[in-house]
Amino acid sequence: MKKNLVAFSLALLLSSQSVQASDYGLCINRSKGDWRKQVVCNQDETRRLMREINNTYAKLARDPHFNRLNTGKTSLNEQFKSWQEYRNSYCSYWEKAQSGYGDEEYHRAECMRLVTQKHYDDLENLIEMAYAIRE
């Protein structure tokens, strides 16, 4: 019974994620090539990913196995800050490399989404690995 409930919750979670992912695709389709509207699509998707990332960090912080690591310089909070600093400085290069056509805002928003997605994937892999190792 418990197993079924877990499987059901997982299916619900996966389907809600695919709905979210397609929200971005739909938003881009609806923009009909208007880069200003696509800036909003990218920003919304980045915000969604940031919420997921925050949840993943919170999940790690609650996990007693990570307690030893979660202090001082190695704290998850520090990691989150470092990642944000890196993303912001990398995206200013991305933006600069593309600038000159007046659509810098679009490139920055796209870079922020892509780098955020990468970090989200990294953290998800980490969580999966942590649980797989314990089994």
Partner: peptide, 14 residues
């Protein structure tokens, strides 16, 4: 900074 901190976490996870 990001690489070192993330990889510490990654290594620790193992």
């Amino acid at each position: 900074n990001l690489r070192n901190e993330y990889c510490d976490l990654y290594g620790y996870t193992f």
